[in-house]
Amino acid sequence: MVSNKLTNDELKRYARHISLNEIGLSGQQKIKNARILIIGVGGLGCPAALYLAAAGIGTIGLVENDVIEESNLHRQILFGNLDVGRKKIHAAADKLLLLAPQLNIEKFPVRLTQENAVEIISKFDIVIDSTDNFEAKYLINDLCHVLLKPLIYASINQFDGQLAVFDSRFETSFNYRDLFPSKPPHVLSPNCAEAGVIGVLPGLFGCMQANETIKLICDIPSGLSGKLLCMDSITLETRLFNVKLDYLNPLRRPGFTLHDVTEEKSNFINTSVQQLEVTTFLSWLKLKKQFQLIDVRSDEERQVISYGGLHVPLINVKGMSVSIRSEVPLVFYCASGNRSTQACAMLESMGLGKNSYSLKGGVMELMRQNTEATQIFRRFDQHGVLIAT
């Protein structure tokens, strides 16, 4: 049990913190009493843990089940040559205790899953997402939203990084699903092992995660409120983007509870909506069956890859009745099938969706089956209707 009172040694150790008006003695006591969970002890988690331990955090929880490899060493600064082959979580705990012997470390040498995430996350005050895969990020985001846990998000790729603070204790705070409603195709989101990353980049963003954590603990206002920070480490261009709340975000659905949090592959699917298999979709094209194709993705997603059809972003679906060709089936598509299912459900609620389909698996499934986008794109007119000839 961590004592609330700072010891004489701690008063000396954290004197430079205490001299800051924004922190002071009371702030340093808050830091000591804080319980912070770091999920992922890799490129982001290592510097975040190191600086939070140095700052005097009382309890740090670590979630990690991976083993140290030589290719980790250029960016995961808690580890050295002698640690290769060791469990990351044990090596990290040893290094942190050398820096801060008074630190209480709670180790969870597991992969975060549906089965264990609630029990782990609910024990802590603030969560730091240092993971490198979308499945974990959606799970962490959804649970922190429901459990009202502030979440410090960061993501890195090659030379670029992103940072945000999601705090569902406040209704005006955005979350990960406002940025990315559904998981992008794997080919558009490779991990560090596939795409590479400059070693200092996770150090920069892990430190910024630690900085935002300390500000939250000490009630220091953040310039990140309602914003996403993006940085290009080649040009050193840093931009802050205002993020609009997506009121179609399923986390804002009335009555949404912890039991509604599911894995991304089956997230928020309305089972009453007709799902069109990609194989059937392709056979319709081959047979020149008349139907209207509607893309409900964002402009940015469509610029990366498009299979054509009428473009109606999901937020505008309720106002698209004048564009609907009622004499032919409607086929909605998105990245994974989640938003297209929501689009069909919206039309059904308006009494217009009896002949509508959601393309199951969306763009990701089309890409998985090596479907050439241009071969489909050119077969639809300006209204998204298949050209018969």
Score class of each variant (00 low, 15 high):
346 M>A: 11
68 I>H: 06
53 A>W: 04
46 C>Y: 02
142 D>T: 08
266 S>V: 13
233 S>F: 05
354 K>C: 10
297 R>W: 06
42 G>W: 01
350 M>T: 01
257 T>H: 00
293 L>K: 03
362 G>T: 00
358 S>I: 04
337 G>F: 02
13 R>C: 12
108 F>H: 15
48 A>G: 08
82 L>R: 11
20 L>F: 01
182 S>Y: 04
204 L>V: 15
376 I>R: 03
80 G>L: 07
90 H>L: 11
122 S>T: 08
47 P>V: 06
43 G>I: 06
306 S>N: 10
183 K>E: 15
24 G>V: 10
259 H>L: 11
315 I>F: 10
71 S>C: 15
219 D>G: 06
94 D>I: 10
87 K>T: 07
219 D>L: 09
337 G>D: 08
319 G>V: 01
140 I>L: 08
141 N>D: 12
109 P>H: 09
33 N>E: 14
262 T>K: 10
176 Y>H: 09
160 D>W: 07
53 A>P: 14
333 Y>V: 07
262 T>A: 07
122 S>Q: 11
337 G>M: 05
167 D>C: 09
146 V>M: 11
267 N>G: 00
155 S>H: 01
120 I>G: 10
372 E>V: 07
331 V>H: 07
202 P>Q: 05
195 A>R: 03
130 S>G: 15
314 L>F: 11
113 T>N: 01
145 H>W: 08
270 N>K: 12
88 K>L: 11
85 G>V: 08
273 V>D: 13
171 E>Q: 12
18 I>C: 12
327 E>K: 13
100 A>P: 00
17 H>R: 08
322 V>P: 02
388 A>W: 06
141 N>C: 09
261 V>M: 00
317 V>F: 03
334 C>V: 08
217 I>H: 01
193 A>N: 13
324 I>P: 13
320 M>Q: 05
77 I>E: 03
227 K>H: 05
85 G>P: 11
177 R>C: 06
74 H>W: 01
220 I>H: 05
78 L>R: 02
128 I>H: 07
351 G>M: 00
219 D>H: 05
347 L>H: 04
322 V>T: 14
92 A>E: 04
